[in-house]
Design a protein around this nucleic acid. Sequence first.
DNA 1: CGGGGGTTTGAGTCCGTTCAAAATACGTGG
DNA 2: CCACGTATTTTGAACGGACTCAAACCCCCG
Lengths: 244, 244
Amino acid sequence: MVEQGGGASGAGCMGCPLRQRSEWCVLNEEETRFLSRHLKKRRYRAGETIFSAGEPSHGVYCVASGTAAIRKGNAEGNTVLLRLAYPGDTLGYRGLLLGENRRYGAEALGPSKVCFVDRAVVKLLLERNPALGQQFLRRIARDMDEAHDHLVRNATLSNRDKFIHLLRALMNRHGRTATDGGHFMELPLSRRDLASMIGARHETLSRIIGRLEEDGIARFSGRTVYVARSHWLLNDSRPPTLLD
Amino acid sequence: MVEQGGGASGAGCMGCPLRQRSEWCVLNEEETRFLSRHLKKRRYRAGETIFSAGEPSHGVYCVASGTAAIRKGNAEGNTVLLRLAYPGDTLGYRGLLLGENRRYGAEALGPSKVCFVDRAVVKLLLERNPALGQQFLRRIARDMDEAHDHLVRNATLSNRDKFIHLLRALMNRHGRTATDGGHFMELPLSRRDLASMIGARHETLSRIIGRLEEDGIARFSGRTVYVARSHWLLNDSRPPTLLD
DNA sequence: CGGGGGTTTGAGTCCGTTCAAAATACGTGG
DNA sequence: CCACGTATTTTGAACGGACTCAAACCCCCG
């Protein structure tokens, strides 16, 4: 019931619990049915690419389940993990708006389901319902703020502090509170990717993690992280910042 | 004729040569007159602040002449120069869209004229002319791309290369071609600000500049820079990238 | 059991920072 | 127009962080 899309079953986006949290929440019943009929839902396996930098923008992608990674490279071939996308997030609206080729790529981090909405469908809905445009405007404005925060952090923080910030952001999404009040989570990313998110080499990140353990800030074992309650709310700026 | 706004003279935005290059170009004659009647134009002296981080968003600002600097700080009080704004650029639409307080500040770098458009006026025009919303959508999408490019550069380039990139971007705006095919410009920023744009200390920038002179890449004298023709198109990624 | 990717660790080097002081440019008032 | 005080810029020396290159390690999968 949650998952369904292009074809067989009847609920479609209507029954999608994500609708409330996504840009599409402003569509009325009829529009939602229209969207439902015209989107294509696809499963992705871990590591599969959803779209790649350089290819033309044929539409937008809406994450239904799982986690997606947004990657962007520079001329020298270096690649950076810009951000993560979660269920409810709509990807690739920029290329569509500007009518340009994709400037970054997206890939599934684990088994995921992602809906594709064709350019024509988006265009039609945008014309029919101006509130949808407003939604995207608000969404992109938020993304913009996040990107700017990210820029400021990168310019002012040490790699260690950047990583702590990243940990906290990830914990907000992927973490659970332990019975003792500490927090733990399963990291959705490899160390390599974690490193690229803070603009450091993976060796450097490895050492940072080592230091964090020495200092008793956190414990790492494979992809599981544990942070003691006492080390959670201190140590960084106040608000438990969101992902970026 | 070019400059005028809230009051006395007649041309207003109608005659503004920037109208073609700004988001407001989609307004028809009547709408432009309306805009013209309701905006407040103000002169700013070098260093004067246009708006500051933390204050409520009462409207947007449109640069009519001069150059404005967008500054953003973090919790620790460090401040970063995010980007520059030039005639035709509209500032502060984000806070307005999201109904939030300003998350960054803007200040005039030299004597400038900036028009203020009240929130109510923007809202009215947005409702009357949906194309205006489209314009802002495209504009913010571009800003987004720039911000992401900036992020990737910061994560992958050395300070030296970041500065070279910045130099080239500034040269595109402020530079002139010399008779010998070289390029020169008057830097619009202090070294301190230049340093903050690439996330480095001003001492570091000073040394980078020194090395650039040693290597014969460029010559610096006060705020004037000269780059020889032979060193212009090489040395960096291909496209003479734009400001960000 | 043998890859192969991801991760850790090590040694050496370079880059960038910090702190401090000198030098230069700049604006103001005399 | 010059003198002075202030802010910016440059330079120096020492330190520390982060990078490179390289090797060892580990874990998962075939």
